[in-house]
Design a binder for these strands. Structure first.
Ligand code: FES
Ligand code: FES
Lengths: 133, 133
DNA sequence: TTATAAAAAGACTAGAAGGTCTTTTAGTAT
DNA sequence: ATACTAAAAGACCTTCTAGTCTTTTTATAA
């Protein structure tokens, strides 16, 4: 469903948030180990997320990753849009290059119902709401 | 949602079926043109489908692709399973390597509802049912 | 003020997906 | 029989995703 990058980002961010709640600021090694993702790749993905402003980090001893508490919660949808674009939320199930109600493919009516459910799910859940589960 | 291969296969097969109904047996060039897919790639994909037994073909003058009328209708699900496996129908939305009800990820309960809807859709629709639309 | 710890940056590699092209094989029509 | 036509086979190429690793920068603790 999602790309590896999105999956690791999701799992990593949720782990960071659960640790932040406990007062910790985990680093790349710990995060990668806990979410069972490749170490260096996880680091790279987290760096991108920091650059995109979704996350904050601190270098040096006692450093690690954490969320800015002043920022609003991060929806899964925002994360997906940033990592893999909107194809999964607006694309055609048949692969036609423009999915619109006036030029529907033979799967359109049924497919958009699923797409809308995906949209609802990723819009309603946030990293913070998942971390609390 | 689906891979390019699945998309082209879907569109190609539906086109072949609509032409079969009209008494025609389209060839690779015509099919690729009509479904707006790369010519040689479409040919390769159709060849695979013939080898897998989903489709029949005839070489030489007047040749082309057609469905065996004795065979039962081909569900989209069978096609997907053959071209890209069952990841989309059994995999975890979080990317965990085993999705089971007793080891659910934080998205499991909501995600499996969507997965089931996808399963229902691809199980109920066939190349033949789509061709008739 | 130095040693150490940790993220940032970015080059590099591997593998899979997507796509192209040429040659071979097998039909069909004449 | 022969010429033609169209699929089959398979080598090859390109692009993207996924993943690795080294070097650099920056912070902290002692
Ligand atoms: S046109 Fe295909 S899903 Fe909308
Ligand atoms: S364990 Fe993640 S969807 Fe089932």
């Amino acid at each position: 469903m999602f790309s590896k990058e999105t999956e690791y980002a999701l799992r990593g961010l949720v782990y960071i948030q659960t640790q932040n709640i406990l007062g910790n600021r985990p680093g790349t090694d710990e995060i990668a180990r806990e979410i069972e993702a490749p170490r260096f790749y996880t680091a790279k993905i987290l760096q991108r997320l920091v650059r995109m402003g979704f996350l904050m980090s601190l270098k040096g001893k006692g450093g690690g990753f954490f969320f800015d508490k002043k920022k609003p919660e991060l929806t899964i949808k925002e994360l997906i849009l940033a990592t893999e674009g909107d194809k999964i939320l607006t694309g055609c199930g048949f692969g036609l290059n423009n999915c619109t109600p006036d030029r529907p493919c033979k799967l359109h009516e049924q497919y958009i119902l699923i797409r809308e459910d995906i949209d609802k799910l990723v819009s309603s859940e946030t990293i913070q709401s998942l971390a609390k589960k």
